Amino acid sequence: MPYRSSAYTANVYPTKLNEYLAMGIPVVATDLPEIRRFNAEHGPCVAVATDPNQAVQAINTALEREPSTDRERRIAIARENSWQTRIAKMSALIVEALDREPAEGRWEKVLLRLYRRARRRAGAVIVGIVFLYVISFETSLPWVMAEVLRAADAPRSSDAIVVFAGGVGESGEAGGGYQERVKQAVDLYQAGYAPRVIFSSGYEFVFPETQVMRDLAISQGVPPGAILLESEAANTYAHVTRVRAILDRHGWRRALLVSSPYHMRRAMLTWRRVAPEIEIIPTPVPQSQFYTHARGASLQQLRGLLHEVAAIVVYWWRGWI
């Protein structure tokens, strides 16, 4: 069970683990906290690998012939974690608690009262969930409320076009959003609004994102000499501070800013706080593929919008806006 170590996988419990053990086959897993906890509770039944070499060695060892007792032990461990076993333990706890009840029949009244209370609360929760679902996914209310995140102005003659790349973007997937931002920058350049383009991104998946964006812009007719790269920034605040240094070094005082439509408000607030002496004109991509919608928002779109709201709060708390 290979996992890439990250903040997310640090809290992952591999749901297939007990299924594999129930088959009696050896299991090799990445060094996850939940795997270590499982081994501590049941003994070293899962081979843990902290790097690729250890993983290869553990797999080779698992492929070797082993005693039948090892297979039986894995099946027994899986049986200990089956739903039947867990429910039996829970039932035993309930019976034990009921046996401690001093007054005959009192526990029935208590359970009935708890049941009625839980039913009323469950009804209220269900109504609330349905209401939230309807206004979030079936109406345009999320987009009306998200208008405050947008900022756009008519492009004017400027010293440079600054493009904040998206990294994994709003979608959470590598390369999300950079193509539409490059196209917007190329359109502004070819329209004659600025003689140069600055791509800013410290993100790297297979290749550095700024290099990919530069190559794409060149293929669309932007001369290589008209492109500058900033390849260290990992967030909006770093984008602003590092690009500001480039603008200051060349004495440029006006720039067109290209980014996602709903990222533009945070970017503009950061510019005004960090570099108020530079005139920034917001020119977001005219239509974002990720945020395209007919009426309601998708779950991924809501997540992207809420991320921007939360990021503005964090930036305010840090004094970046």
Score class of each variant (00 low, 15 high):
S82E: 03
S140P: 07
R181M: 00
P44M: 12
Q84N: 03
A40Q: 15
I281L: 02
A62E: 10
N18W: 06
T15R: 06
L257H: 07
P223W: 12
E230T: 10
R295K: 11
T30H: 13
A238N: 00
Y193P: 03
S288Q: 13
L188K: 05
V314D: 15
A165W: 00
P67L: 15
P52K: 13
A311S: 11
N39F: 07
W316M: 11
A78S: 00
D70L: 14
L216M: 01
A124N: 01
L32Y: 08
E308M: 02
M264Y: 09
F207W: 09
R266P: 08
A47E: 15
Y133F: 12
P223C: 11
A275W: 07
C45V: 14
L149C: 09
A297P: 06
T139H: 02
S158W: 04
E277I: 07
K16L: 01
G319C: 10
P261V: 15
S288Y: 08
E147F: 03
E66L: 08
Y203E: 02
T236K: 03
S171M: 14
R318F: 12
P286L: 05
D153P: 01
A47Y: 11
G24W: 05
D248N: 13
E170N: 08
G176D: 05
E34N: 04
L17I: 00
R113V: 07
A275R: 03
W252L: 05
L93R: 14
R254C: 02
H42Y: 03
S82W: 07
D153F: 00
V12L: 08
L269K: 14
Y20F: 13
F290W: 04
R116G: 04
Y291K: 09
L269T: 13
S171D: 11
A152L: 02
V182H: 04
R265H: 10
E66T: 03
Q289E: 15
E180I: 08
L216R: 05
G304C: 09
S140N: 09
A97D: 09
L93V: 10
G192K: 03
K16W: 01
V258F: 03
V309E: 09
R266F: 00
H250M: 08
A310F: 08
V134L: 10
A97V: 01
G172C: 14
S231H: 10
L305N: 12
G128Q: 09
K16Q: 00
E308G: 12
R303H: 02
E138C: 06
V110H: 11
M213Q: 11
